[in-house]
Computed example of a mutant assay.
Amino acid sequence: MKRYKKRMVIPLLVMAFVMLAGCSSKTTSSSQADPSSPEKPKIGLIMKSLANEFFSTMADGAVAHQAAHSDQYDLHVEGLKDERDISRQVALVQEMVASGVDAIVIAPADSKALIPALRRAKKDGIVVVNIDNRLSPEMLEEESLQIPFVGPDNKAGAKSVGAYLANKLQPGDGVAILEGLQTSDNGRMRKAGFDEAMNEAGMKIIDSQSAQWEMSNANTIASSMLSEHPEIKAILAANDSMAMGAVAAAKSVGRSDDLLIVGFDNIDAAAQAIRDGKILATADQHADKLAVFGIEAALKLLADPNSTLSDVETPVDLVTAETLQ
């Protein structure tokens, strides 16, 4: 396990991170180096797109936590401009390693493609904690690599949303699914939860396509689904950005009053849409705490280099108009 290194905080280095092509920097939280001050670990938090409210909220929660515990660790946050830019996220891991972080907490854009870069980080003595989207357990086992996952049960969360929707439908009703990235574990698990809930309730899944987590893609795909299959009674979206895209699609084809839509993440726009009756339900992963859970896990591992950490399941709760009252 590598030891903490004393570092001077150089403003030009911070500017270089911000200017790197293909990524966006939320903030750098760090105190000026003082030779007399206790040595602190530096944690790098690597997100998906900080343009996505869910991940921006995660980053804000992490920054607030560091500010409240500034005597315990320093934090640097980076995110993508486009959460599908997997190669850029791989580069961010490499840059964090080069900058001398002691730990990396990462919400990977892909469940397999990030593993080689993270393996090299661990080889360099860096603690790695996986949040939000689980890295492939099969590939980790093949690589004999232990990286703890700190996050919710996405399948269970999606199933609870689907089951709530099913209570508003009749057996045999047609539904459609807007999937996330098919290379992401959380995308696959949410689809599996939706599938299970619909099948158990006797619904007919008419169409299921990936909108790649994006609102505009979801709008286009949902519009096509509804035009081609007017019998669709509900759309299950694997995140709230896609659910908002489905809301726009429903409006464009005149289905705002009768189409039921559910999502996942509980971003502010979706919560308001639930209050307005445009979305039926979503799942709350408590974005403001999710990165913090990962940081706390990393700090435990840094405090005891000989320790190991099992996966940590974090809360996921059903959100409806009733729970928002």
Rank of each mutant, 00 (worst) to 15 (best):
A211S: 14
H76Y: 07
Y4S: 05
V253C: 03
G125P: 11
S49C: 13
N133V: 12
T27C: 14
N217E: 12
D304G: 02
S241V: 07
H229Q: 07
A281F: 04
P35V: 14
A246E: 09
I106V: 13
Y164E: 07
D257H: 09
L259S: 05
P315E: 02
S70E: 11
I43K: 04
Q89S: 08
K2M: 15
L178P: 05
G100Q: 10
L135I: 09
M139Q: 02
A166W: 05
I115C: 03
Q212S: 02
D240L: 10
A51H: 13
K168L: 12
E53P: 06
K278C: 10
T183N: 00
K233S: 12
A62H: 09
L12D: 01
Y4P: 00
R7T: 01
A297Q: 13
N217P: 00
T220L: 07
S87I: 15
A270S: 14
G187H: 12
S30Y: 06
S56P: 00
L302I: 09
N239T: 03
G193Q: 05
L12V: 01
E296S: 05
E141N: 12
N306W: 10
M15I: 00
A64G: 03
I235W: 06
T282H: 09
T220C: 02
I206P: 04
I205M: 02
V18P: 02
K251E: 11
K251H: 13
K2A: 08
D240R: 15
E138F: 00
D85K: 13
S210R: 09
Q285A: 03
L75P: 02
A211Y: 04
I206K: 08
D82G: 05
E143S: 11
Y4H: 11
E141A: 14
L135K: 11
V63E: 15
